[in-house]
Amino acid sequence: MTVTSLERLSTLSSRFVPDLVVGELCAELFASLPRSDQRRKGEVYLRGLLQAEGRKSIRNIAAYVGDRAAEQSLHHFVVSSTWDWGRVRAALARYLERALPPQAWVVQPVVISKAGTESVGVDRRFVPELGQMVNSQAAYGVWSVGEEQSCPVNWRLTLSRKWRDSIGPLSPNAGESELASTPLELVAGAVEELRGWVGRTRPVLLDVPDLDPAAVARRFEPSGTHFVAPARGSLRVRCVDAVLPGAANRELAAHQLLLMARTLRRPVSWRDPSTGRPRVSLVVTVRVELPNAPRPQLLFGEWSDPRGWPDQCWVTDMTQAHPGALLRLAKRARQVEADFTNVAQKVGLTDFGGRSFEGWHRHTTLASAAHAVRVLTQRAAEH
Rank of each mutant, 00 (worst) to 15 (best):
E7V: 11
E7P: 01
R8I: 05
L9T: 04
S14G: 09
S14R: 11
R15G: 13
L20H: 15
F30D: 11
P34V: 10
S36V: 15
Q38Y: 04
E43W: 00
E43G: 05
E43C: 11
R47I: 00
L49M: 09
Q51L: 14
I58G: 09
I58A: 11
I61D: 04
A63L: 08
D67Y: 10
A70G: 07
Q72G: 04
L74Y: 08
F77C: 07
S80I: 02
R87W: 03
R89T: 08
R89L: 04
L92P: 09
E97G: 13
L100Q: 10
A104T: 06
Q108C: 14
Q108D: 14
V111W: 03
A115P: 10
E118V: 14
S119Y: 06
V120K: 04
G121W: 13
V122N: 05
D123Q: 15
F126V: 13
V127A: 05
V127D: 12
L130A: 10
G131D: 05
M133I: 15
V134M: 15
S136P: 12
A139M: 11
A139G: 09
G146M: 13
E147F: 09
E147N: 12
E148A: 14
C151I: 05
L157V: 06
L157K: 09
L157A: 01
T158P: 01
R161W: 13
K162N: 10
W163S: 06
R164G: 09
R164D: 11
L184R: 10
E185C: 02
V187K: 09
A190K: 07
A190Y: 11
V191F: 05
V191I: 00
V198M: 05
P203Y: 07
L205K: 02
P209N: 12
P209V: 14
D210E: 15
D210P: 11
L211W: 03
P213K: 09
P213S: 10
A217Q: 00
P222Q: 00
P222M: 00
G224P: 05
T225D: 07
V228I: 01
G233F: 05
R236A: 12
V237K: 12
R238G: 07
C239Q: 03
D241N: 09
L244N: 08
A247N: 14
N249D: 13
R250N: 09
A253P: 11
H255W: 10
L258I: 04
R265H: 12
W270E: 11
G276E: 06
R277M: 09
R279K: 06
V280R: 13
S281N: 13
V283W: 01
V284N: 04
V288W: 01
E289R: 11
L290T: 03
P291D: 06
P296C: 03
Q297M: 14
Q297W: 08
L298S: 01
D305R: 15
R307D: 15
R307N: 15
W309H: 14
P310N: 13
D311N: 14
W314P: 06
D317T: 00
M318R: 12
Q320A: 13
A321G: 02
H322P: 08
P323M: 08
A325L: 12
L326Y: 00
R328M: 00
L329W: 07
R332A: 01
D339T: 01
D339M: 02
F340G: 01
A344T: 06
K346V: 01
G348L: 02
G348N: 01
L349R: 09
L349S: 05
F352A: 02
H361M: 09
T364A: 11
S368Y: 01
A370R: 00
A372W: 02
V375L: 11
R379S: 12
A381T: 13
H383W: 13
